[in-house]
């Protein structure tokens, strides 16, 4: 079960809506943050704390592909490879991430440190290539800059 701080956080979300179902999506994000991905246990915890049937929770969670349905690394890198980023070398960055950190595209590094998700355009074409690490945004990427950035994500 969630610890008290998390429960309080979820209570806070619940309080915002007349229907506790409305708190489901944000609560799933919290569960994902706590468990790293939406494991069965994570979803059961959400079901309990919102007093919703598990089938409703899993049914909703499984609809959204942007939740993590598989275990992920401690940090999730979402790298864009759409046109602007591609032209400015995102493809090479994908290779770099694999050789330097052992994290394959749409996979997780052996040490569990990083997962890499290949993204469609994240709206930073003007400063491409761009990526998100967890919820932090970075642009104007190069191999060197990536190295510097990832230093902060152990």
């Amino acid at each position: 079960m969630f610890n008290d701080t998390v429960l309080k956080e979820i209570e806070g979300i619940k309080a915002k809506y007349p229907d506790r179902r409305s708190a489901l999506l944000p609560s799933l994000y919290i569960a994902q943050r706590e468990f790293g991905w939406l494991s069965r246990e994570a979803m059961t915890c959400v079901a309990r704390s919102l007093n919703l049937p598990e089938a409703v929770v899993r049914g909703t969670a499984s609809f959204y592909s942007m939740y993590k349905h598989k275990p992920a690394g401690r940090h999730v890198i979402q790298l864009c490879t759409n046109i602007s980023c591609m032209i400015l070398g995102a493809g090479k960055l994908v290779d770099f991430l694999e050789t330097r950190y052992g994290v394959p595209a749409n996979g997780t590094s052996g040490d569990g440190r990083f997962s890499l998700v290949i993204m469609e355009c994240i709206g930073a074409c003007g400063t491409a290539p761009a990526m998100l690490v967890n919820t932090d945004f970075y642009d104007n990427l190069s191999e060197k800059r990536i190295e510097e950035i990832l230093e902060n994500y152990k």
Binding site: M43, P53, E54, A55, V56, R58, G59, S62
Partner: peptide, 20 residues
Amino acid sequence: GRGALGLIGRGFPTVVQPAF
């Protein structure tokens, strides 16, 4: 008032089943 069934998944592969 039971909520025993869900439509699990999205699109084509969706199945009707209990949560897990």
